[in-house]
């Protein structure tokens, strides 16, 4: 395997932030001294991901590079380094189940298995209806409240198979008609 982005999105036009988001982006850039605008990269990538379909396509990254006046390669390097950024288009909802020791001690393996069975996918895959992408994550800082998963900005803690079922149902309802 070699990482060369060849998906169909690569030649799409660059997206653009709304005027309102742009204000937020400018505020973030303003948190750093003159000439250190690159420091805003991480936060802006989070915003870009939220705004532009839950992932960072090549045009999105090129756009961010242009905004910050840096080389596109600097953005690709960062986006591939940090695990939170999706460089491939995921489902509408990304479930990230913590699999690290403390969560494993209280049953994260079973939760992962349960979701795998329920959605008929393996970790790393997206469900057939395109709604759920299941991922595993390393320690999310909720060790005392495990098993847990992260979905967007939310932590769902003290999971049980029953709670997972409920969560999946709610999320499916929320997203299936969009």
């Amino acid at each position: 395997m070699s990482t060369i982005a060849t998906n169909e999105y690569i030649n799409q036009p660059e997206p653009e932030f709304s005027a309102e988001k742009m204000k937020e982006v400018q505020r973030i850039i303003g948190l750093f001294p003159e000439g250190k605008q690159k420091s805003a990269l991480m936060r802006i990538l989070h915003i870009a991901e939220e705004e532009f379909g839950g992932w960072l396509s090549v045009p999105t990254m090129n756009y961010v590079a242009r905004l910050l006046n840096i080389q596109p390669i600097e953005v690709y390097e960062v986006a591939t380094f940090y695990t939170m950024f999706n460089i491939e288009k995921p489902g509408k909802v990304v479930l990230e189940v913590c699999r690290t020791g403390p969560c494993m001690l209280v049953g994260s393996d079973q939760i992962i298995e349960h979701i795998e069975k329920k959605l008929n996918i393996k970790a790393g895959e997206t469900s057939a209806d395109g709604i759920f992408t299941l991922k595993t994550a390393e320690c999310l800082g909720a060790c005392g409240y495990g098993p847990m998963l992260q979905c967007g900005k939310h932590y769902h803690e003290h999971l049980t198979p029953a709670k997972v079922d409920e969560l999946l149902d709610t999320l499916r309802k929320e997203h299936s008609d969009k």
């Binding site: 936060r43 380094f81 695990t83």
Partner: peptide, 23 residues
Amino acid sequence: CPGGGAYICGEETALIESLEGKR
């Protein structure tokens, strides 16, 4: 400022690199 998912950025010089918008 937020990180992006990397334990190593808890190491202080990695944290600084990250805060500069780098790997």
